[in-house]
Design a protein around this nucleic acid. Structure first.
Length: 492
RNA sequence: GGCGUCGUGGCCGAGUGGCUAGGCAGAGCUCUGCAAAAGCUUGUACAGCGGUUCGAAUCCGCUCGACGCCUCCA
């Protein structure tokens, strides 16, 4: 029997601002869409955090036995630099600056994005559509909205008529805004706007002559508005209404608000049942952002090549660090916090590595079923990974007790214990075990030889020699660990 | 100005109206020739002021502080 039948998941829905029982549209299947990156520069760790949250969510759904179609797009066009009429496509702007073909920029940063995700052990989404590959679909949606008179054309551009839409629907339903208030609180534009209302957003923009990313349309040559692409791609692959739409908190307004309005206008149905928003990763208490330079790149983390980092960190350590906070909480990035997470991570992995050496007994002194259910309860409660990790550390304690014979598990229980630990750590959290290093045979041989020499010296109470061997290996980054059953070593 | 979030012990970070989060650091202990490593044990807390309640870090109000969105943004 699939796990989801016995594990009831609760999800915090940003639309209702409440935790709700998760009931998919079709039993056993989950449709999930997450706004992907705009590929005009390298993704930073803040971006990674959001995608990581949804990677974990994707993984847990799969673990529960759901068949998941996870769609995460690549925004490679149609993303306005700003909403003024002089708006320029981000991709095109970058391309001109670097004198590259737009698709060359897209290619470069898409590859970077994928490399980063790979480094962080992300599962690939089921479909990764691009905006440029869905121009036709976007044009069709615009036509429909125009037919319904919820959009209007001006000078080769098409704008969504927010006020008209608001007559029958609620524009602002997701972000808790009221369109009337918004109008009164919007700083007056400089009178150049061709929009009826400042709140109106572009579905299609006319391309200026120098604009190099352009497509023909019924309204002339132009390019699609940013919000529209997500509507086109999500509904195309997941249906007019689907289960989950995710993204960063900063996309809630206007992006997701616009998505709801467009899709509702297009098909007469609200597109998403559960809206999920991941919170920001901050640096020095401020949101990481490309524009302000207040960010850290994944490459810098891994190389340690950044002033605030004292040393390089493995991607999986950063992953562990982020999962120690709840996805809906703001998390502040710092070297100290990362170092603390790293030590905890190693403790966890040390215990995992000891798992295979444990022996079973005739009886169990641990209530394994209760512990296991606590792990599920944590995840079932809106993906509470910090609580799950706390229970996994409880598991670490069990492992150490088993190792020392202070606790026992039957063969069946031990098997289940191992499976559960491995499932949560590697399948659900997606951590990788980097503490098991492949040291070359030659190096191992040399170190073991030295260990043997040191053992002899110790047997002869030649402390000077034994300490010398130990200290010099330490200097080389090889640490000897004297345990009960002899000496082992680890390479840093 | 509008909408919203948050303020937990040295640090990071969970949390249900009454019962231990967890990690890191600190302290003590075990192991050790001495260390290191590892393991065990363990203290300090809920921004401030009021209110509701038998009881609140957890609900309500106010004050202070921080942040997010309102323009591109994960």
């Amino acid at each position: 029997m699939e796990l989801y039948k016995s594990q009831q998941l609760i999800i915090y829905n940003s639309l209702s601002n409440k935790k709700e029982d998760f009931v998919p549209l079709t039993e056993g299947y989950v449709g999930m869409y997450v706004c992907g990156p705009t590929v005009y520069s390298n993704v930073h760790l803040g971006n990674v955090r959001t995608f990581l949250s949804f990677d974990m969510i994707f993984r847990y759904f799969k673990h529960l036995g759901y068949k998941v179609r996870y769609v995460r797009n690549i925004t490679d066009a149609g993303h306005l630099e700003n909403d003024a009429d002089a708006g320029e496509d981000r991709i095109a702007k970058k391309a001109r600056l670097e004198e590259l073909e737009p698709m060359e920029v897209v290619q470069q940063y898409t590859v970077d994005f994928h490399n980063v995700l790979n480094e962080f052990n992300f599962l690939p989404p089921s479909i990764e559509p691009t905006a440029t590959g869905h121009i036709v679909e976007q044009i069709e949606i615009i036509k429909t909205i125009l037919d319904k008179r919820l959009a209007y054309e001006v000078n080769g551009s098409v704008y969504f008529d927010v006020l008209k839409y608001n007559e029958s629907e609620h524009y602002g339903i997701l972000s808790g805004r009221n369109i009337e208030d918004a109008i009164h609180n919007t700083r007056a534009l400089d009178g150049q706007s061709e929009k009826k209302n400042p709140q109106d957003f572009a579905l299609w923009k006319r391309a200026q002559p120098e604009h190099i990313m352009r497509w023909p349309s019924p309204w002339g040559v132009g390019f699609p508005g940013w919000h529209l692409e997500c509507t086109a791609m999500s509904t195309k692959y997941l249906g007019d209404q689907f289960d989950i739409h995710g993204g960063g908190m900063d996309l809630k307004f206007p992006h997701h608000e616009c998505e709801i309005a467009q899709a509702q206008a297009n098909k007469g149905v609200t597109p998403v049942r559960y809206w999920m928003h991941g919170n920001m990763l901050t640096l020095n208490g401020k949101k990481m952002a490309k524009s302000t330079g207040n960010n850290i790149l994944p490459g810098e983390l891994i190389s340690g090549n950044n002033d605030i980092l004292s040393k390089p960190f493995a991607a999986t350590v950063a992953r562990f660090f982020m999962l120690q906070a709840h996805y809906r909480s703001i998390l502040d990035f710092s070297n100290d916090a990362l170092e603390a997470a790293e030590r905890g991570y190693f403790r966890l992995m040390n215990a995992v590595n000891a798992l295979n050496n444990l022996r079973s007994s005739d009886t169990s002194s641990i209530d394994l079923a209760a512990w296991k259910q606590q792990c599920y309860d944590a995840m079932n409660d809106d993906f509470n990974t910090p609580i799950l990790i706390a229970h996994l550390f409880e598991g670490v304690k069990y492992i150490n007790q088993l190792k020392e014979g202070k606790a026992t598990l039957t063969e069946a229980d031990l098997k289940e214990f191992k499976e559960t630990i491995n499932a949560f750590i590697f399948d659900v959290l997606g951590l990788e075990n980097v503490s098991v290093q492949d040291t070359s045979d030659k190096l191992s041989g040399v170190v073991e030889m030295l260990v043997k020499m040191r053992d002899d010296a110790r047997a002869n109470k030649d402390w000077a020699l034994s300490d010398k061997i130990r200290d010099e290996l330490q200097t080389l980054g090889i640490q000897l660990k004297d345990g009960k059953d002899g000496t082992t070593f680890s390479v840093n």
